[in-house]
Deep mutational scan, measured.
Amino acid sequence: AQASVVANQLIPINTYLTLVMMRSEVVTPVGIPAEDIPRLVSMQVNRAVPLGTTLMPDMVKGYA
């Protein structure tokens, strides 16, 4: 199964992502692939992302 990117903490709206904020986990539904974690660093979330939430492409500015 493919691992997705999951929030490792509460990520406030407009926060620039860093490695410590994200982890990879096999979840349903599938979100942003874990292999894209390096690409996500320094990208901004466009909403608050609670701890344990799967990151979806529409949550990250400029990802989709």
Rank of each mutant, 00 (worst) to 15 (best):
V26E: 15
R39N: 12
P50W: 05
I37C: 03
V49G: 00
I11T: 01
V41W: 04
I32M: 04
P38T: 10
V49D: 00
T54L: 05
E25P: 02
L17V: 03
Y16A: 15
A64D: 14
E25W: 04
V5E: 02
L55N: 00
M43W: 06
A48K: 11
R47F: 07
L55R: 00
M59T: 07
Y63P: 08
V30S: 15
S4L: 02
Q9S: 10
P33R: 14
M43I: 04
G62Y: 06
R47T: 14
P33G: 10
P57W: 06
S4K: 02
V20L: 07
P33Q: 04
E25A: 08
L40F: 02
M22H: 00
Y63T: 06
R39D: 03
T28F: 04
S42M: 12
T54C: 03
M22L: 07
N8M: 11
R47A: 12
V41A: 06
T28N: 09
T54R: 05
A34I: 06
P38D: 12
T18W: 03
A34G: 12
V27R: 06
L51N: 09
I13V: 15
V30Y: 15
L51I: 13
T54I: 11
S4C: 04
I32C: 03
T18R: 04
T18A: 10
Q2L: 09
V49A: 11
G31P: 01
T54P: 10
M56C: 04
G52Y: 13
S24D: 14
G31H: 02
M22N: 00
Y63H: 07
V20I: 12
R47K: 10
Q2S: 11
M59G: 04
E35Q: 08
S42H: 14
A64P: 13
M56Q: 08
L19T: 14
N14A: 08
N46I: 14
N14R: 06
I13F: 12
G62P: 05
L55W: 01
Q44F: 05
K61E: 10
M59W: 13
D36C: 05
V20A: 10
N46Y: 11
R39L: 12
A3L: 11
S42V: 08
Q44G: 05
D36N: 12
A48L: 11
G52R: 05
Q9G: 06
P38A: 06
P38K: 09
L55Q: 00
P38H: 15
E35S: 11
R39A: 07
T18G: 11
P57A: 15
L17R: 00
L17W: 01
M43T: 09
P33D: 13
E35M: 05
Y16H: 15
A48P: 07
I37H: 03
A48T: 15
A34C: 04
L19W: 12
I11P: 01
P29S: 06
M43D: 05
V30T: 13
E35Y: 06
D58C: 04
P12L: 14
E25F: 03
I32D: 00
L10C: 13
Q44K: 06
A3F: 06
S4W: 02
I32N: 01
I11H: 01
V27F: 02
G31N: 01
G62T: 04
I37R: 07
Y16V: 15
V5Q: 01
S42Y: 08
M22I: 13
A1N: 07
T54F: 02
G62V: 04
T53G: 11
A7M: 08
A3P: 13
Y63S: 05
T15K: 05
L17N: 00
R39K: 11
R47N: 11
L55F: 13
T15Y: 13
V26S: 09
R23V: 08
N8V: 10
M59H: 13
G62E: 14
I13N: 08
Q2G: 15
V49R: 03
L19H: 14
P12D: 12
M59E: 03
N14V: 02
D58E: 12
Q44S: 07
V45D: 01
I32S: 01
L19N: 10
V5I: 12
A48S: 14
Y16M: 15
S4M: 02
V60G: 01
A64V: 06
L40D: 00
A48Q: 15
T53A: 13
G52C: 04
L17P: 03
K61D: 08
S42W: 04
Q44H: 06
V41I: 08
P33W: 11
R39I: 14
T53R: 10
M56V: 13
M21C: 03
I37Q: 15
Y16T: 12
V5W: 02
V6N: 01
R23Y: 15
A64R: 13
N8S: 11
L51G: 12
L19A: 14
V26P: 07
K61T: 14
Q44P: 08
M22F: 08
P38L: 06
Q44R: 07
S24G: 12
L55C: 02
T53C: 04
R39Q: 12
R47Q: 10
V49E: 01
M43A: 10
T15S: 13
T18S: 15
V45C: 03
M59I: 08
D58F: 09
D36G: 06
P33N: 14
V41E: 14
V30W: 05
A1F: 08
R47M: 15
P57Q: 10
R23S: 09
V60W: 01
V6H: 02
T28D: 15
Q9I: 14
V6A: 04
K61M: 09
N8W: 06
V20E: 12
V30L: 10
A1G: 15
P38C: 04
